[in-house]
């Protein structure tokens, strides 16, 4: 097995309550892991911790053998060096629920910006790559538009394109369709499936159970900051064993 991401005993506290409590899982190269669970169960927090948007309170995250945490000292985590954290950051791509596109930049510039200023590609090369990525996301002809002129579905596809620009080894998606009108959900799920078929490694938090079933190699069900059930979709979604999973799926299946 080609393990790319390892999360060990991840702990995240807000004040004194646990948002994530001793969560461990791994993701292999090319695998699609889907995390489901009720709102507030800690799914998004896990993605935010891995992407260094939140400081963790315990445990560790390892990507390609680089560790986020160097050691524990007096019950506090000591983060690794800036170089390693930056490297890990670039190996992760993040797609947000609210897209967070840069409104003052065109769709094309949204994609090229990081290639030019972070990866230091020359502009022409970045533009060519960006045009290819945008075409792949079904956004041909929209390159010169600004985010405010796109539909929600197009905005989310543009934000996925922007994430692909830094060529991340794992793509994290935090409820990528939750901010969309129902009729626009399909087009976004379609490009996510396309990415899965291209053997991209992805970790997706979603409420779209049917979609989870179709795309996931493995599903994690979370509740109250803990993993309740984990396995292939056939087991977790179709034949859940735990009571909480059953209750949750009953509410979401219609």
């Amino acid at each position: 097995m080609n393990e790319i991401l390892k999360v060990e005993n991840l702990v995240k506290k807000y004040n004194d309550s646990y948002a994530v409590k001793n969560v461990s899982f791994t993701v292999n190269k090319g695998e699609v892991l889907v995390i489901i669970g009720a709102s507030g169960s800690g799914k998004s927090t896990i993605l935010r911790c891995i992407n260094q948007l939140e400081k963790i309170d315990g445990g560790n995250v390892t990507i390609n053998e680089d560790s986020m945490i160097k050691e524990m000292k007096n019950g506090k985590v000591i983060y690794n060096t800036k170089d390693i954290l930056n490297k890990m950051n670039l190996e992760c791509g993040m797609v947000f629920q609210n897209f967070n596109l840069f409104p003052h930049l065109s769709v094309l510039q949204n994609v090229t910006e990081a290639m030019v200023h972070v990866l230091k590609l020359d502009y022409k090369e970045a533009e060519n790559k960006a045009l290819k990525i945008l075409e792949n996301m079904g956004l041909k002809g929209k390159e010169r538009k600004y985010p405010c002129n796109l539909s929600g579905g197009e905005q989310q596809r543009a934000s996925i394109a922007r994430t692909l620009a830094i060529a991340p080894q794992i793509i994290f998606m935090d409820e990528p369709t939750s901010a969309l009108d129902p009729e626009l959900v399909g087009e976004v799920l379609k490009v996510v499936k396309k990415l899965a078929s291209q053997n991209r490694t992805m970790v997706i938090v979603t409420h779209e159970i049917q979609f989870a079933k179709e795309i996931a190699d493995r599903v994690i069900f979370m509740c109250d900051g803990k993993i309740i059930e984990e396995g292939i979709p056939k087991d977790v979604i179709d034949n859940p064993k735990k009571k909480r999973t059953k209750e949750f799926l009953k509410r979401y299946s219609n």
Partner: peptide, 12 residues
Amino acid sequence: KGQKEAAFTLGF
């Protein structure tokens, strides 16, 4: 806040 977060995850 999402603008800063997006920029951060892109490596800016």
